[in-house]
Computed example of a mutant assay.
Amino acid sequence: MKKTIISAIALAFVAMNGNAQDKLAQDKAAIKNLCGCHDVTFEYSETFPADTNYKPKGYKKTSGAIEYITVAEEGPRRIVLQHLLIAGGDVIKHWTEDWQYENRTLLSFDKDDQWKKTELPAANVKGQWTQKVFGVDDEPRYEGSASWVHADGRHYWESTSSAPLPRREYTTRSDYNVLVRTNHHEITSKGSIHEQDNQKVVRTDGTDKVIVGEKGLNTYNRVDDAQCEKAIAWWNEHKAFWALVRKGWDQLYQDNSTVTLQKKVNDTPLYKAMGELEKKAHDKELTGAALEKAIASTLQQFAGRKDVSMK
């Protein structure tokens, strides 16, 4: 009888482990299914104001963009996806999403260009994936942890996190300083959707005052890869440089409990400083250890203490 009970427990453990492995494989497949060449539409509209005197901004739609998404890095517990936008015939390095399995360390946005490292209990992230979102220079944006759900023929992931102002508004709005984003990513028969239910918030000393809600819908419809040939070629030529940039950021995040991102250093924005380094790498003016050192130095200047100046 005792042996029968032990055998039953062992079989249950094997089944549970097998189910966990199957779920992990499903999760990875869903994340990688976000890749490909897409015709993208971006739609946003403010919804319900917290103050009746506030008039919500109107509906905005941007369509006709082509976006290529590819796996930039992959390991047993990590999948990095790179977005490349094709606009006006040019390739623009767009945002990066770094998916990490059962990750316990989040770099959480606080407010006013500052992020703080937070540690989550292992039990809280069991079976979950953290989506770490980074900007065009792989600078921090927002991070959230949740489980991928595979049920009733649907495959989706949803999480809420604080973020800085979106690029569509950060140069035109000063009436709020935090976007609390609920991001919903779902695989569709045509590609995927990125649905958002956001709140525009004024955050002061840990207190949030909601200004207005916002609905967002980014639709990714897969098209023939031939439409992304230019982006594919560009990425093959530049991906080694951006792998070093990600490595530099990873080290900076590891070494710091808070990150304060400066918009400019010596009147130079980050994208220009990184563009100069990328050109030097492309022209072989900087290679190897010297290139890695230059990248690390630049990142430290923009994401370190405010009294640090460029050398």
Rank of each mutant, 00 (worst) to 15 (best):
residue 30 A to I: 01
residue 234 W to E: 07
residue 275 G to T: 03
residue 83 H to E: 06
residue 175 D to R: 06
residue 186 E to K: 04
residue 307 D to I: 12
residue 259 V to W: 02
residue 41 T to G: 04
residue 50 A to T: 08
residue 163 A to T: 11
residue 223 V to R: 01
residue 283 D to L: 09
residue 110 D to A: 14
residue 78 R to K: 10
residue 61 K to V: 15
residue 237 E to R: 14
residue 41 T to V: 13
residue 10 A to V: 15
residue 71 V to D: 05
residue 82 Q to M: 06
residue 291 L to E: 05
residue 160 T to H: 04
residue 100 Q to N: 13
residue 146 A to V: 03
residue 68 Y to R: 02
residue 20 A to V: 10
residue 84 L to I: 12
residue 306 K to Q: 14
residue 86 I to D: 00
residue 63 S to F: 07
residue 301 Q to L: 11
residue 146 A to S: 11
residue 197 D to H: 14
residue 96 T to V: 13
residue 131 Q to R: 11
residue 201 V to H: 00
residue 261 L to I: 12
residue 305 R to H: 10
residue 22 D to E: 11
residue 181 R to K: 15
residue 31 I to K: 00
residue 39 D to G: 05
residue 216 G to I: 01
residue 105 T to G: 04
residue 149 V to W: 01
residue 35 C to K: 01
residue 255 D to I: 08
residue 296 A to K: 09
residue 222 R to E: 07
residue 112 D to L: 10
residue 206 G to Q: 03
residue 76 P to W: 04
residue 110 D to E: 15
residue 135 G to E: 09
residue 187 I to H: 00
residue 223 V to Y: 01
residue 97 E to D: 13
residue 158 E to C: 14
residue 119 E to T: 15
residue 116 K to T: 11
residue 72 A to N: 09
residue 242 W to Y: 13
residue 83 H to P: 00
residue 69 I to A: 03
residue 252 L to G: 03
residue 182 T to D: 05
residue 57 K to E: 09
residue 137 D to Q: 13
residue 158 E to F: 05
residue 179 L to M: 15
residue 56 P to T: 09
residue 286 L to C: 03
residue 66 I to N: 07
residue 228 C to E: 01
residue 206 G to M: 04
residue 251 Q to C: 06
residue 293 K to M: 09
residue 309 S to M: 12
residue 228 C to Q: 01
residue 12 A to H: 09
residue 152 D to I: 05
residue 245 V to G: 02
residue 4 T to G: 05
residue 146 A to C: 08
residue 137 D to L: 06
residue 109 F to V: 03
residue 84 L to N: 02
residue 243 A to E: 11
residue 228 C to Y: 00
residue 201 V to L: 02
residue 86 I to F: 02
residue 135 G to W: 03
residue 85 L to P: 01
residue 227 Q to A: 14
residue 245 V to T: 05
residue 266 N to W: 05
residue 204 T to Q: 14
residue 133 V to I: 11
residue 31 I to G: 00
residue 288 G to Y: 05
residue 222 R to H: 04
residue 185 H to W: 12
residue 199 Q to L: 13
residue 184 H to I: 08
residue 273 A to S: 08
residue 298 T to G: 03
residue 175 D to F: 08
residue 50 A to N: 14
residue 187 I to W: 00
residue 46 E to V: 04
residue 183 N to K: 12
residue 135 G to H: 07
residue 191 G to A: 04
residue 86 I to G: 00
residue 185 H to A: 12
residue 137 D to M: 14
residue 4 T to L: 13
residue 277 L to C: 06
residue 25 A to Q: 08
residue 60 K to W: 08
residue 273 A to C: 07
residue 262 Q to R: 15
residue 200 K to P: 01
residue 156 Y to H: 06
